[in-house]
Simulated assay, not measured.
Amino acid sequence: MIFRLAALLALAMPTAAYSQTATGYGAPGENEAPIAFLIDVSSGQVLFERNADRRFIPASMTKAMTIYLAFELIEQGRLDPGQVMTVREDTWREWAGKGSTMFLPADARVRVDDLIAAIANVSANDGSIVLAEGQAGTVDAWVEEMNRHARLLGMTNSHFGTPNGWPDEGRTFTSARDLARLGEALVEQHPKKFARYVGRAGFTFNGITQPNRDPIIGRVRGADGIKTGFTNEAGFGFLGTAQRGGQRLVMVVAGIDRTAARARVSRRFIEWGFEAFERQRLFVDGALVGRARVQGGDARSVELATERTVFVNVPKGQVRAMTINIVYDGPLRAPIEAGENIARLEILVPGMEPAIVPLVASEAVNRAGFFRRIFNGIAGWLT
């Protein structure tokens, strides 16, 4: 059974309009970006979506999953940034100068550290293959791990057939919502690795320096990545992020027809995300927001707490009646550990997707002894 505890809150916000700010920033029109998605990952709130679950070909945005998998393997001790990999002759023949490249020579010995940086910043197709073969033994084994981690992230509309997004007759596909979830995982689960490898202005290897073609780095305040993509079939796309004052936005645009249009749309879109909403703090980190019923425990309920400061975005210039729900599958069953994620806070602003915030147990609830279970049963029958 799903339990809901609801509260109603009305907020009035002054100043600019929802679809376009006074500075000229705005969400892209459908003719500009058929697929568009923007989420405030610090609040869990979707600020804009269009065709967010439509499957499309990600092209080189696929490499964001290769980067994420590399970060996961480093964390698990299965990949060492200082490890040296050798370029196989067959790999060099197939990938030398093929699309975006880090210009790996035949039989080159290259550190994992350089491979990840090249994949992240100059979209190295050759580097992606060398990393996959060097760690997993074969490209197929690496791709299998990519798909396993995509499932763990809840990327239900995605499948990867290559480490680099090279055209594969449609076997590789994703959605804007899935890509945003991947972007969130990169910055939230691996912040130090993300800061080290992603978002450089350029990359130099073997005496060759190339610029990063990311459309917002150095042009949008707080921008720090993540990955562009292009093929003739897919058009131009971008998975990007920026952070200002503790607020991090992740955006996806896809199906754009020109590189200049992608740059313009991306900059306007993410600036709009920062400018068009009023950000309000609802609860501080660790705030107690309600209680959940517990079955079979030494207490009949447990207090629910936030595990981070909770913010909500409301379009400027509009009065919105906001509904806040506490949702959990219950009654919960003991034992419950302090800090265990047992419920969620749903913040509903009309016209916007719900913001979902995890709630944790503020204290432990142990399994009840025999007499306590009898007492709880009688008390539950009487109340």
Rank of each mutant, 00 (worst) to 15 (best):
A16V: 11
A16E: 15
Q20C: 12
G24Y: 01
G26P: 09
P28Q: 07
G29R: 14
D40K: 02
L47I: 09
N51Q: 13
A52T: 04
R55M: 12
R55F: 07
S60V: 05
M61P: 03
I67E: 11
A70W: 00
E72V: 13
M85R: 05
T86E: 14
T86P: 09
D90Y: 03
E94C: 11
A96H: 02
G97W: 02
R109V: 15
V112A: 07
L115I: 01
I119V: 01
A120M: 03
S123H: 06
A124E: 00
V130A: 10
A132T: 15
G134M: 10
G134A: 14
A136E: 14
V143I: 09
E144R: 08
M146V: 07
M146E: 13
L152M: 14
M155T: 06
N157P: 10
S158N: 04
R171S: 03
L179V: 12
A185I: 04
V187R: 04
E188L: 15
P191V: 04
A195T: 14
A195I: 09
A201R: 15
T204V: 07
F205N: 12
N206H: 08
G207C: 10
D214V: 10
P215W: 06
R219P: 05
V220Y: 03
V220W: 01
R221N: 14
R221F: 11
T231P: 04
T241G: 03
A242Q: 05
Q243M: 13
R244I: 11
Q247Y: 08
Q247P: 07
V252S: 01
A254S: 11
I256R: 04
T259Y: 15
A261N: 07
V265A: 08
F269A: 09
I270A: 01
I270Q: 00
E278S: 07
E278F: 01
R279Y: 09
F283I: 05
A292I: 05
Q295L: 15
G297Y: 00
G297N: 01
L304K: 00
P315R: 02
T323R: 11
N325T: 14
N325Y: 15
Y328A: 03
D329W: 02
D329I: 11
G330D: 11
R333T: 15
E337V: 11
G339Y: 12
A343V: 04
L348E: 02
V357A: 00
R367L: 11
A368N: 02
F371C: 03
